[in-house]
Design a protein around this nucleic acid. Sequence first.
DNA 1: TATACTTTTCAGGAATTCCTGAACGTTGAC
DNA 2: GTCAACGTTCAGGAATTCCTGAAAAGTATA
Lengths: 190, 190
Amino acid sequence: MNLTPLVQSFVLHFGEMGSRWGINRTVGQIYALLFVSARPLNADEIAEALAFSRSNVSMGLKELESWRLVRLLHQPGDRREYFSAPEDVWAIFRTLAEERRKREVDPTLTMLRDALLVQPDNEPDRHAQKRMASMHELIELSTSWFADVQKLDERTLRQLMKLGSAAQKLLLMKDSLKPAATRNKKAIEP
Amino acid sequence: MNLTPLVQSFVLHFGEMGSRWGINRTVGQIYALLFVSARPLNADEIAEALAFSRSNVSMGLKELESWRLVRLLHQPGDRREYFSAPEDVWAIFRTLAEERRKREVDPTLTMLRDALLVQPDNEPDRHAQKRMASMHELIELSTSWFADVQKLDERTLRQLMKLGSAAQKLLLMKDSLKPAATRNKKAIEP
DNA sequence: TATACTTTTCAGGAATTCCTGAACGTTGAC
DNA sequence: GTCAACGTTCAGGAATTCCTGAAAAGTATA
């Protein structure tokens, strides 16, 4: 199994990008390969295509499975495990976002909430808590909004994005339904 | 300069989180410390508080400056450089998003565009290109939308987020202004 | 149950990243 | 100009992460 230059460059790029994130080069490349592959691949094919050891591929696939980014399937009459990346890029994006939330955002929110429960007994802590509160609010608000928006189906989401902010702003201009409550809340907050 | 337990746990958490991203522990901790600090700090204070070498702090601060996450300032009658994190968490978020776009998204888009220009001469490449095209579209659409939304001021953004998706969906129901164009485009695309 | 095929685990070497102290560079005060 | 205070650079050791081959474990077939 030989990679075409086109696929090669895609795979290499994702290897690089992977290492900018927590993900290592191997895992990035494996995912990239599965993403562009026209059919599911087994571990041996991947190992050969990318020139990684069989065990490295095995670990990489496990990692990808833990991120729910690959699907495991079987071919009739073949004992080997085949892997593929889901088709729908929007679904992939959703999975990625969800998984990152679980691993990064939620623990951070927990830490912040705990920190905010402490009764500060000195000036530095009082200030630190104010900062943490503002961070907590931002994260809370944006993740819950994101979760909400992600429930929309692809077509609706696409439309919303294409509309951009201009039309959405119009929605607020009316200043009729919800905004009143919003404004009141805002007025109470310091 | 001694950290209170409250600040300590915040700083340590960000050190950990930092290493999940490309950012290393040191840089994460320095940023966290500056974020909760009530006043700007100089490099020596940071080095002492976190028990890092002076040179390590120097490199960390340089990294943070390259991300535009810290502000450099001077105290009257003091030759040393003082650093602080901007107050406004929304602005911080914006900066972070912009910087990540520059470093990760833009190069990826460039790579994808280049790949899409190639005239594929075999089946695997034809399929790979289709996959890359769908990825390209998703990234293009979501980043341009994000850039657009980020131009809104904090108050408006807050309101929009609080409305959630429900109200935004209403906007589309009307199916009057733009959606026609959107639907046509969609119909043309395979 | 034995066999062949497949996947997983893991010790340890390779590669990379991190961090430090020492040397060097720069700047302002005297 | 000299000196002290401060910032930066960088070689190389420390720590971490990555990757591999060998061995073990698992599994379908006969």
